[in-house]
Simulated assay, not measured.
Amino acid sequence: MSKEKILKFYKFEGALNDFIVIDGRFNKLENPEEYAKLLLDRHASIGGDSLLYLEESDVADIKMRVLEKDGSESQMCGNGARCIGLYFERFYGIGNITIETLAGVKKVKKVSENRFVVSMGPMQKLRNFVNGPRNEYELIHELFSFKIFVVNSSEPHAVIPLKSIKRIPKEKGLKISKNFKLFPYGINVDFIEILNEETIKIRTIERGVYEETLACGTGAVASAYVFNKFLGGKDIVHVKALGGELKVELGKNENYLEGEAHYVFKGDIEL
């Protein structure tokens, strides 16, 4: 990593899930994973939940890589995708884009000022995110006396319903998130509280970050899906995160995530 490199970056947030955006088409990085570990440090650098590194794509308008604080790469980020939608709208005047991710191509559409909807695709197979026998798409399991519902909404999530999430068992949540014997790549953990048949509250511990974030887009979709399929929820679910409210619309072949995205600032950092 060059000590004299000047790097242009942008800061965005969606429901206070905050991101550093680096457009690799103009600021190419040889090892962006290493830059993620450096730049996401909130005390010694810019700080953020994830680094969204953009590259050219052969199948979409842009490729988005989601890089975490530990240097790992996530499959997809719903809040991040909305922020990239805003990046293209603000700096290039393009309202609708397609984004290549490790979980497939996602469509992002502007619906109003600072508000975007992401076509998240259908729920995906659990694949090698979970060890042991299970249904291809779902695992219902018990850990630390919690009933957990494991699904893949473009990212693997363990959804845990509680009577109240005013206080969550973070230590146990972290142990589940880092249970690499069961979840070889770690797993996102979502604690949810049902308010009514159309509304839930959510608090999420994200893998790669391994701490609580103020919102998680794929977590909102995973939780809405579990709520709808197993706990009596509707097809349209309002998900109240600590950082803001997201709207999830569930369909047979497509799930949609809608919410706000905001540009925070841009700058140059010398490395």
Rank of each mutant, 00 (worst) to 15 (best):
R115Y: 15
V226Q: 11
K252C: 05
F265N: 04
G173T: 03
V118D: 06
I94F: 13
P156D: 02
I236K: 15
P133H: 04
E142S: 01
V130Q: 00
Y35V: 13
N152D: 07
L16P: 00
V130K: 03
K106H: 14
V59Q: 11
S153Q: 01
E100K: 07
L271H: 11
A81I: 05
I97P: 04
V226F: 14
E113I: 06
I192N: 12
N196S: 10
N179V: 01
L195T: 09
K175L: 10
K181E: 15
A241M: 11
G104C: 07
Y256F: 15
N179A: 06
V108C: 02
L250N: 01
D58M: 07
G14K: 03
F183I: 08
V150I: 02
E13K: 09
E33W: 14
P169V: 01
E254H: 10
H141W: 14
A103Y: 11
G85N: 00
A60S: 12
I84Q: 06
N135H: 14
F9E: 00
K175A: 05
F19N: 03
I176C: 08
N79I: 01
D190R: 05
G48E: 03
D18Q: 02
I200K: 00
G267F: 08
L39G: 03
C77Y: 10
A215H: 03
M123S: 10
E193V: 06
K201A: 12
L40C: 02
S50Y: 14
E211G: 11
K63P: 11
E197S: 12
K125M: 13
R207D: 10
T213E: 07
V221E: 08
N128M: 04
E197M: 10
I192Y: 14
L67Q: 05
Y35H: 13
V130W: 06
N79P: 03
S119R: 13
